[in-house]
Write a protein that binds this DNA or RNA. Structure first.
Length: 420
DNA sequence: TCTGGGGTCCTAGGACCC
DNA sequence: TCTGGGGTCCTAGGACCC
């Protein structure tokens, strides 16, 4: 049996923990650049604010209903997530952090018998330790646990827990879940299946294997087996190292000046190198891309990317920046209004045993020490004060974040004050 | 004025090799 | 007229997830 624990409206709930006045009031958290609504409290959902709606399209509505609006505060959400996961891991050693606000617990080999009661205890404990409300779904496979979680939100709002404990409960759940709400079925496949006459998860679970394999590939077949209660999705209790690492942002304003855009890219390259070091990896290929704003159909469009092979795997900031600029100089073209640039590190390998080139002149040991010192200083300051000159300090590309809450849990200057 | 960012996996098709 | 059969590697693009 698997449990899927999901934090309710996670980003909104994080804001509420430190600002209880928001309780009962609609809350919306925006994406980077204050672009779209990516998290909504139940009250905001009731107002009809859909996931991913551009903020400028709902300005009036937000004001009219006195919605509390926040920019994304990833420092806060990341730290709160760590605390939730820490609490969950106390219930079961076989835990898999699936995303910032979700985790699977695998109860195989555990002595728990009443999983419904266990679910209730988990919810209560997480709430007590972190202030974050959760929902718990329990079932035989991960796909069914996901479904049970969704089912709990809809049909068990009072307890927040659903355990698909027997055949009858599983069937009740399958029959009451529409195709589009199955984990792994997106808009495209939902439309296709609809046309073929499938409406519920129950119906899909009974589709013939051959047909599913042919129309939905092995991914679909795995999914159908999961619906039948046969686990097909591998457990990953260790956080696997990322296979690609991407750093990219849209600019607050459209940019035309080459040096401004290059400066942005150098900053993303530095972040990318830091992410590599954090997971003890190096990369051997970089992909650099630039693009104009595709929503501005009246503007001339330009999208281009390039792959750059490195001489040897690296995670050194100045090295990564050097190659990023090299690629950028090839693909950048004057005369366009640019919206975004970014860098993807690929061909990722562990940072032990780096194959050095025969004529390597770089002193890698020295570089490594420099990086370690830089990371240590920046980490202790909580910001990237030690930087490369090309990163600049005058960020023309800065993203918008006009509704940012304090970093309550990670910055001593942002501690919540009860009374002045 | 204003439309996120970061991932994964799978398939098809081309290039190349023997 | 006619054009092997495998295998591997790479890339692009689609679909999905949070």
């Amino acid at each position: 049996m698997y449990a899927l624990i999901d934090c309710n409206n996670f980003y909104c709930s994080c804001e509420r923990v430190f600002n209880p006045k928001l309780e009962g009031r609609p809350v919306v958290v925006l994406s980077n650049n204050d672009g779209c609504a990516v998290a909504r409290s139940d009250e905001a959902k009731d107002l009809g604010i859909a996931m991913g709606t551009p903020a400028f399209m709902i300005q009036d509505e937000l004001r009219k209903h006195n919605v509390a609006v926040f920019s994304s505060n990833y420092t806060l959400y990341g730290d709160m997530s760590d605390r939730v996961m820490q609490t969950l891991s106390g219930f079961c050693p076989r835990m898999e952090t699936y995303s910032i606000d979700e985790a699977f617990l695998d109860f195989q080999d555990m002595a728990y018998s009443d999983l419904l009661q266990l679910g209730l205890t988990i919810r209560k404990t997480v709430k007590q330790h972190t202030g974050i409300p959760t929902t718990v779904g329990i079932a035989a496979t991960k796909t069914l646990a996901k479904m049970a979680n969704r089912f709990a939100k809809k049909k068990r709002p009072d307890t927040g827990v659903f355990w698909a404990a027997n055949k009858q409960l599983v069937e009740e759940m399958l029959a009451n879940t529409i195709i589009r709400d199955i984990w792994g079925i997106g808009a495209q496949h939902a439309r296709f299946l609809q046309k073929k006459g499938f409406h519920t998860a129950m119906e899909l679970s009974q589709a013939p294997d051959d047909w599913v394999r042919k129309e939905l590939s092995v991914v679909g077949l795995r999914l159908v087996h999961e619906l039948r209660g046969i686990p097909c999705i591998a457990d990953e209790f260790e956080l696997p190292a990322k296979k690609n690492i991407c750093t990219s942002r849209s600019f607050g304003n459209l940019l035309t000046c080459k040096s401004d855009i290059r400066e942005a890219l150098c900053n993303y390259a530095a972040t990318c190198a830091l992410k590599l070091r954090k997971q003890n990896s190096c990369c051997k290929t970089l992909e650099i891309f630039v693009q104009t704003n595709p929503h501005k159909i009246e503007h001339r469009q330009y999208v281009r990317s390039i792959r750059v092979q490195l001489e040897r795997p690296t995670n050194n900031t100045s090295e990564i920046i050097k190659y990023a600029v090299k690629g950028f100089d090839i693909i950048f073209k004057e005369g366009y209004l640019y919206k975004k640039t970014g860098i993807i590190a690929m061909d990722i390998t562990p940072d032990t045993h780096i194959q050095t080139g025969l004529f390597d002149s770089a002193n890698q040991e020295k570089d490594k020490v420099v990086m370690t010192v830089m990371d240590t200083i920046n980490r202790s300051l909580g910001k990237d004060l030690v930087r490369m000159a090309v990163q600049g300090f005058d960020k023309k590309f800065r993203v918008r974040a006009e509704h940012l809450s304090p970093r309550y849990t990670t910055d001593i200057n942002n501690l919540l004050k009860i009374r002045n």
